[in-house]
Design a protein around this nucleic acid. Sequence first.
DNA 1: CGTCTATTTGAATGTACTCAAAAGCGGTGG
DNA 2: CCACCGCTTTTGAGTACATTCAAATAGACG
Lengths: 177, 177
Amino acid sequence: MTDSEKQLVFSLLNQKKIARKEVLLRQGDSCKKIYFVEDGSLRAFNVNNSGKESTIMFALQDWWITDMDCFINQKPALVSIEALEQSKVMELDFHSLQELYKSIPKFERFFRILFQNAYIREQQRALQNISFSTEERYWKFVDKYPAFVQKATQKQIASYLGVTPEFLSSVKRKKES
Amino acid sequence: MTDSEKQLVFSLLNQKKIARKEVLLRQGDSCKKIYFVEDGSLRAFNVNNSGKESTIMFALQDWWITDMDCFINQKPALVSIEALEQSKVMELDFHSLQELYKSIPKFERFFRILFQNAYIREQQRALQNISFSTEERYWKFVDKYPAFVQKATQKQIASYLGVTPEFLSSVKRKKES
DNA sequence: CGTCTATTTGAATGTACTCAAAAGCGGTGG
DNA sequence: CCACCGCTTTTGAGTACATTCAAATAGACG
């Protein structure tokens, strides 16, 4: 990127510090921003009409996170986003992103690749969820995302895997023996 | 698009007719092509090491389909792709796509939006899978994709929902009474 | 028409959930 | 600095959801 391009980018980004458990987006609200995690970690979760909480994604340093359908298509947010620990994020709003696409075509490419990778990850997750047992999925998760295991509670991980915390507890116990 | 752009696009696409049950991509192979469904319908499925078959996605007219990780990152295919009925597809290979990105920047945008939508769909599917019961998921599926219900077998739909055909059968029976 | 595969049905089994209670742990205020 | 409070995790018993296996029936295709 040229210097003037960098300047434009930074003028559109807004740094924000957030405390542990602070909420960036509340389910049902509209969301105008996408977040880049500079430091710390976040999670996105949904609460369905029976009160069941499901973690949809975690985000670590250098990840982007938002409710895409909400951000892109102005739908009400299906998830809330909260910090797992004290974190720093850069926020970029929808109109600024359009501005970037227009002024710096490179960004089309950048986000094309970003979405491409996000899609690939989701496809793999779908495949894993459907074709492996809970036990296999948990140990693969531990293996792939040790940072999340450290930062998230068991309850949150259980809700990411789609099982109850009680059941996840028994999966871990099984490993011991 | 200008006429010369259109000409370039068509020169890179290759039309292909395929019979019912014909396989476009075999799990484990490398895949150099992405397919656009002009007519008919396809499905992508994985067979895991215990022999369990899972349908990862269906594709109707106007959808794009391939194993993305394989296509983009040269990984061995995790899925096979086969036709549910006699179909017509356009195939575009990886290098031709790079050529398109380079010659017609509009295509960066086009595929950025394509991947964006694909990602949003996958996120929604993940959420639905985790937060609804099999019964709810089946009836939502019937409602959202009536064409697939018509074209795919029960067994294939069961494998998309992640349940056995026997169980899906009992879900349907329940509705009757 | 016959064959092969898909679907249905039911019984027995296993996987995961609910509920309740106990134990562990972390943060906060006195 | 420690005692307490609230929340997370563990444990277990009872229940519900989903699978496996086997057999009967129905459908689809050559």
